[in-house]
Design a protein around this nucleic acid. Structure first.
Lengths: 115, 115
DNA sequence: CAGTATCCCAAGCGATACTG
DNA sequence: CAGTATCGCTTGGGATACTG
């Protein structure tokens, strides 16, 4: 793991630097349920291009969030998984999950009460 | 509060739609410590342009995350604060804060042990 | 002070073609 | 299958000027 640039003073900004991107959050979401192959991730993250997915996976690997395991087979097989550091993002993910659920149900309440 | 578009099935994606942006997270961070004026926010969020800050504030207001209070004075005075929904983002913010701190101290440990 | 309006540029992305 | 390389373009965002 290495990150040459200096980290910001505010820890929230540190998190944003490493995870402040839609695709990165969704990659973590998918890998929290277990190891995935490149093709599985691409399929799950509907709308992401191969190029962008690769870029994000490389950045997250460099920052120590995910592990990339290459099998020396033909056709190639590459598996991605979370490192311990990446796994610890579960708390952030869960907080986002719960907030999203609460927001959705609150909207439903408002909708019903307004009808 | 209103959001015309349909929300995604995955609650995490809902959160990303509403908060999946660096500046929005930092706006919440600043407003969690209390009501702020436009100029205070702009100063605190070093690097954000007036245009972009306004855009994000408008979007967050529309989605019910923040409240905008305009005083009928000259020169104008506008105060921004979190709604209850916005305030509930504290959990997400705190999770990001803690993760950023842990990441930073882990890097320091690695640095020291590698020296 | 807190905006809006306009112009303009460049980073980032999609699409495509190619390869170990 | 899982990439890399290249190109062209969209659009987010900066800079500036102006206003209630």
């Amino acid at each position: 793991m290495s990150l040459n640039e200096n980290l910001p003073r505010c820890p929230v900004e540190t998190t944003l630097m490493l995870m402040g991107d839609k695709w990165k959050v969704l990659i973590v979401r998918d890998l929290l349920t277990g190891t995935k192959r490149f093709g599985e991730l691409k399929k799950s993250l509907a709308g992401v291009s191969q190029k962008v997915l690769t870029q994000h996976l490389r950045a997250m690997e460099k920052n120590g969030l995910i592990h990339r395991k290459v099998y020396a087979v033909v056709p190639p097989k590459v598996e991605y998984s979370l490192t311990d550091v990446g796994q610890s993002l579960k708390h952030v993910h869960d907080a986002m999950l719960q907030w999203g659920e609460a927001y959705k149900s609150k909207r439903t309440d408002n909708y019903l009460s307004a009808s």
